[in-house]
Design a protein around this nucleic acid. Sequence first.
DNA 1: AAACAAACCTGTGCGC
DNA 2: TGCGCACAGGTTTGTT
Length: 277
Amino acid sequence: MPELPEVETVRRGLEARVVGRRIERVEVGRERTVRRTSRQAVIDGLTGTTVTAAARRGKYLVCALDSGDAVMIHLRMTGKLLLAPAGTPRPPHSHVVMTLDGEELRFVDPRTFGEIVVFDPDRADIEVPELARLGPDPVVDGLTSAVLRARLAGRSRPLKAWLLDQQRVAGLGNIYTDEVLHAARLRFDRPAGTLDARRIRAMRQAIDDVLAAAIAAGGSTLTDNQYVGLSGEPGRYQYQHRVYGRAGAPCPRCRKATIVRVPFAGRSTFFCPRCQR
DNA sequence: AAACAAACCTGTGCGC
DNA sequence: TGCGCACAGGTTTGTT
């Protein structure tokens, strides 16, 4: 579910409302959420610590603790972090609950693909190896045309597959790749290595513009309401989607063709067959 | 290197 | 109303 803009919205919520606070108590219901280590490792690693920073890389949240450890949280498809007054009813699938001075930070995740792991940053390469493998994050690291060009060179994969690969660029998922490719006027199935300098610049600009607008709008909340921010507030970027979920609608740029939905890489892809090449 | 399918789970929406 | 199927924002793993 959540891609870079949604995770960034959650990160900002954590920074504003959780950083600086002490985790008094930790409850782990479903052990699957903490499968990387164990229920006890996560309870022991979090209890009594104060959250000192909230960072993000791609779709990964990484919070620093005053113990020297860090906690990685990945929401995957249906994970949510919700901050609510202690004592209020917990939503179904509240697998991990952290109590902080009258409030509860709840990790809610119906499909249980998400996970939480407390790790030693000095051993990050072993304990969360995927973090080190992530490509540049367009917001955290910035992304230049030169970097894009170097990484795209010689690649035969379709552009969309390339953009979805977190080891190439970190943070884009199914919604935002489609939005970026439409903004850059590029077809999803064009081989990644065939972009000339002008198209590379267009794609870089599109990545920046789409992500900035989406973050400013608090991310995208689709009709199933799966994604909401820390306080349960929905995002608003779905109202600005130009192609995602809009099959059959006229293309908002050329207004002549109709947005098409095709299966690609096992999921839906939306694009304008007229203005994306 | 890259394409594809399957796996991990649960919920929802749709056609019949 | 009820049933069965398709599908869903992500990532890893195994197979061609």
